Amino acid sequence: MNRITQLFNIEYPIIQAGMIWASGYKLASAVSNAGGLGLIGAGSMYPDVLREHIQKCKKATNKPFGVNVPMLYPNIEEIMDIIVEEGVKIVFTSAGNPKTWTPFLKEHGITVVHVVSSVKFALKAQEAGVDAVVAEGFEAGGHNGREETTTFTLIPMVKEQLQIPLIAAGGIATGRGMLAAMVLGADGVQVGSRFVASVESSSHDNFKKTVIETKDGDTQLTLKELAPVRLVKNKFFNDVMELYKESPTIEDLKTLLGRARAKKGMFEGDLEEGELEIGQIAGLIHDIKPAAEIVKEIITDFEAAKREAVSL
């Protein structure tokens, strides 16, 4: 058993990222049933919707699953109370200070993991008492670190200084990517973009099709003044680029972004005006398939790559 399978009591050290508008209970339970760790993405859910997804997930799997909570959330107290009330055993926190909620969650016997984008924040998370850290390189989709450190350099740098288990994220969609991350020092991997293009993902079919058509160079990190986010280059992205030519203020950027832009793109399928968040690895994703098949494919590919590496 490795440190991550042991920590979460799962079969494979594969965690499905908690992604807004993509990871409801259907995806989380499917990944957990397949031997990984499924996460419900609370970032796009009102408190009552999250409660419903947790309850449905408990019915859909008897395996461990967790909830991902971006701490910028306006209803954060209510969200944390629901997590405790519903008996969730694993919480991944992101976008905030781990000291704020880790003690509360640990008091309730919850395993806590924090997502970081630098060595500095990995060490702060360890100090705050989390059980493991996800170190995410800037290849990742969605909201991202300002440092723009790639996964390939971030993982060994974090590993060098961290005592607790380390999960690699950003640009990992295959078993070969998983092996590379683990050779560099990760104990497990968190996979996001690959699971967006799954049957059980709650994203709109238009968005899923866009993901499998995306090639290298089709995404870019932008809106760093608000919160860096990796987007597909569509009409909305081009509008952002045009606005940058005018040296916009933060207010100008906020006005253009408006509200519910990510929902419009990823959940409602508006490919022109919506915000389409996906990782650079989308160029390697060519089909939409059930989550269980994706997990199986990653493990098969991982084992094959390991055998090949031994013969080098």
Results as ranks from 00 to 15, higher is better:
residue 215 K to V: 08
residue 150 T to N: 07
residue 148 E to K: 14
residue 236 F to S: 00
residue 145 G to C: 10
residue 213 E to F: 00
residue 149 T to C: 05
residue 243 L to S: 04
residue 147 E to Q: 12
residue 233 K to F: 02
residue 245 K to Y: 04
residue 169 A to W: 02
residue 140 A to W: 06
residue 224 K to D: 10
residue 260 A to I: 00
residue 159 K to I: 07
residue 243 L to V: 06
residue 159 K to N: 14
residue 152 F to A: 08
residue 166 L to I: 06
residue 176 R to D: 04
residue 158 V to N: 04
residue 234 N to H: 08
residue 160 E to R: 14
residue 141 G to V: 10
residue 166 L to K: 04
residue 187 D to E: 10
residue 188 G to E: 09
residue 258 G to N: 06
residue 176 R to W: 04
residue 195 F to A: 09
residue 232 V to Q: 00
residue 138 F to K: 01
residue 204 H to T: 10
residue 220 Q to S: 13
residue 152 F to Q: 10
residue 204 H to P: 06
residue 259 R to W: 09
residue 156 P to D: 02
residue 233 K to W: 13
residue 241 M to C: 11
residue 144 N to T: 14
residue 190 Q to A: 14
residue 247 S to H: 14
residue 259 R to I: 06
residue 195 F to C: 05
residue 237 F to M: 07
residue 247 S to L: 04
residue 166 L to Q: 03
residue 254 K to S: 03
residue 187 D to I: 05
residue 244 Y to Q: 14
residue 155 I to H: 02
residue 204 H to G: 02
residue 198 S to L: 07
residue 179 L to G: 01
residue 166 L to M: 04
residue 237 F to D: 05
residue 204 H to F: 09
residue 219 T to I: 13
residue 211 V to N: 03
residue 160 E to F: 03
residue 239 D to S: 05
residue 155 I to M: 05
residue 197 A to N: 05
residue 177 G to H: 07
residue 217 G to D: 11
residue 218 D to A: 14
residue 178 M to A: 15
residue 177 G to F: 01
residue 248 P to V: 00
residue 167 I to C: 09
residue 254 K to M: 10
residue 195 F to K: 06
residue 207 F to M: 13
residue 237 F to P: 00
residue 161 Q to S: 08
residue 218 D to M: 15
residue 137 G to M: 05
residue 198 S to Y: 05
residue 206 N to T: 00
residue 253 L to P: 00
residue 194 R to L: 08
residue 167 I to E: 03
residue 166 L to D: 03
residue 233 K to R: 14
residue 169 A to Y: 02
residue 234 N to M: 03
residue 231 L to Q: 03
residue 238 N to V: 01
residue 255 T to I: 10
residue 236 F to R: 06
residue 239 D to W: 04
residue 232 V to T: 01
residue 225 E to G: 07
residue 213 E to N: 15
residue 258 G to E: 11
residue 244 Y to A: 00
residue 147 E to M: 12
residue 251 E to R: 07
residue 225 E to D: 14
residue 260 A to D: 14
residue 195 F to V: 11
residue 154 L to S: 02
residue 172 I to Q: 03
residue 159 K to W: 09
residue 209 K to S: 11
residue 206 N to V: 02
residue 191 V to G: 08
residue 192 G to Q: 12
residue 235 K to T: 09
residue 233 K to M: 10
residue 211 V to M: 05
residue 240 V to D: 02
residue 204 H to M: 12
residue 235 K to N: 13
residue 218 D to R: 06
residue 181 A to R: 03
residue 156 P to I: 06
residue 140 A to R: 10
residue 226 L to D: 11
residue 159 K to A: 15
residue 242 E to S: 13
residue 243 L to D: 08
residue 202 S to R: 09
residue 200 E to K: 05
residue 256 L to R: 04
residue 205 D to H: 01
residue 172 I to A: 11
residue 162 L to C: 02
residue 224 K to H: 08
residue 195 F to S: 10
residue 161 Q to L: 13
residue 168 A to P: 02
residue 248 P to T: 06
residue 167 I to V: 15
residue 145 G to F: 12
residue 155 I to Q: 01
residue 154 L to Y: 07
residue 195 F to Q: 03
residue 251 E to I: 00
residue 214 T to L: 05
residue 190 Q to N: 09
residue 187 D to K: 12
residue 225 E to A: 15
residue 182 M to G: 04
residue 198 S to F: 00
residue 206 N to F: 08
residue 167 I to F: 02
